[in-house]
C-alpha cells in the first residue's frame, strides 16, 4: 500500500512572529522556517506503518515555491521514499490546496493520505476535511492512535471531553494530533542519502486546474496588547486586588 503525506513549510513554531508594518501579512523574510509540526507527526506515522510492512511506499508532497524543497528533503531524510513539489508562487487558500491535492491523489492512488490537523500559520484546520469531501473518502481527524488492517483503520480521535474511536474504510484521510507519536530526527547519513532520492517538480499551471479565489485577505494586524500588570507581594494582597479592584471574586 502507498501512503501520501502532505507537508507544509511554515514559520518555525519557536519563532515569535511579527506583523508587517503595512498590515499585509506576517514578516517571513530572513525568518527560520520548518516543516509544520503536525505534518512531521504525519510523516512519522507513515514511516511506522511502512516499518510494520503495512505500507510499501511513503510519498510526500508539498505545494509552494522552490523553498519548500528543503522541507521535502527533510521528509526524505526522515525516511520517505519519494517527494513531489507542486510549484507555485501563489498563496493559496485551503479549498484550492485541497483541489491540488485531489489531483495528486488521483495520479498517485494512495490507500491512505496522512496530514497534520492544522498548519500553525493559518490555524485553519480545514484541508484534510476538504480533501476528504472532494474525494468522497471517509475522514478521521485529530488522530491520537491508529490501528491499520488491510481493509480499514481504527482511529482514536481526540475530541472535546475525551476520546472517540471510529472505524474508517480505506482509502481514507487521517489528520494527526500531537499525541499520535514522537517524530524521529534525521541522522546525518540519512540527510546525505536524501539528496539522491527522487523529488519531482510539477508546475501548478500544468495541472489543468481551474482555481478560483474564494477569500480576500483585507488586512493582518497584531492583537490588542494587554495593559501592563501588577506584581503583588502576598496572597492577602492578591485576594484584595481580585475582590476590590478587578471585582472577579
Amino acid at each position: 500500500m502507498k501512503i501520501l503525506v502532505a507537508v507544509k513549510r511554515v514559520i518555525d513554531p519557536y519563532v515569535k512572529i511579527r506583523v508587517k508594518s503595512d498590515n499585509t501579512g506576517v514578516e517571513t523574510q530572513n525568518i527560520k522556517m520548518a516543516m509544520n509540526p503536525f505534518d512531521e507527526i504525519a510523516v512519522e506515522e507513515a514511516l511506522r506503518l511502512r516499518e510494520k510492512n503495512w505500507a510499501t511506499e511513503v510519498v510526500i508532497v508539498s505545494i509552494g515555491t522552490d523553498s519548500s524543497q528543503e522541507i521535502l528533503r527533510h521528509g526524505l531524510a526522515l525516511g520517505a521514499d519519494r517527494a513531489i513539489l507542486v510549484r507555485t508562487s501563489d498563496s493559496l487558500e485551503s479549498l484550492n490546496i485541497a483541489k491540488i491535492l485531489k489531483k495528486v491523489v488521483e495520479d498517485e492512488k494512495p490507500s491512505l493520505v496522512l496530514m497534520g490537523k492544522q498548519a500553525i500559520d493559518g490555524d485553519n484546520n480545514q484541508t484534510p476535511q476538504m480533501l476528504s469531501a472532494l474525494l468522497n473518502w471517509p475522514q478521521a481527524t485529530y488522530a491520537s492512535k491508529l490501528e491499520a488492517s488491510s481493509e480499514h483503520l481504527e482511529v482514536t480521535r481526540e475530541i472535546d471531553g475525551g476520546l472517540e474511536t471510529i472505524n474508517v474504510q480505506l482509502p481514507a484521510i487521517v489528520s494527526t494530533d500531537l499525541r499520535l507519536n514522537e517524530p524521529r530526527y534525521a541522522s546525518l547519513p540519512n540527510i546525505m542519502k536524501a539528496k539522491r532520492k527522487p523529488l519531482d517538480v510539477i508546475e501548478l499551471d500544468s495541472m489543468g486546474l481551474a482555481l478560483k479565489k474564494h477569500i480576500e485577505v483585507i488586512q493582518v494586524t497584531a492583537p490588542a496588547a494587554r495593559s501592563a500588570g501588577k506584581r503583588v507581594g502576598s496572597v492577602d494582597e492578591l485576594i484584595n486586588e481580585l475582590q476590590n479592584q478587578a471585582k472577579v471574586l
Binding site: V26, I215, V217, Q219, V220, T221
Partner: peptide
C-alpha cells in the same frame, strides 16, 4: 471557502479570526 474560528463579524461578508496561535488577527472577505 470556510472561515475558521471567527472572532468578530464586521458585516455579512467580512470576518476577523486569529492566526499564528493568536499572535495576529486576519481580516478576510
Amino acid at each position: 471557502a470556510q472561515v475558521s474560528d471567527v472572532s468578530k463579524i464586521l458585516d455579512n461578508d467580512t470576518f476577523e479570526h486569529p492566526i499564528y496561535a493568536g499572535n495576529a488577527i486576519e481580516k478576510v472577505r
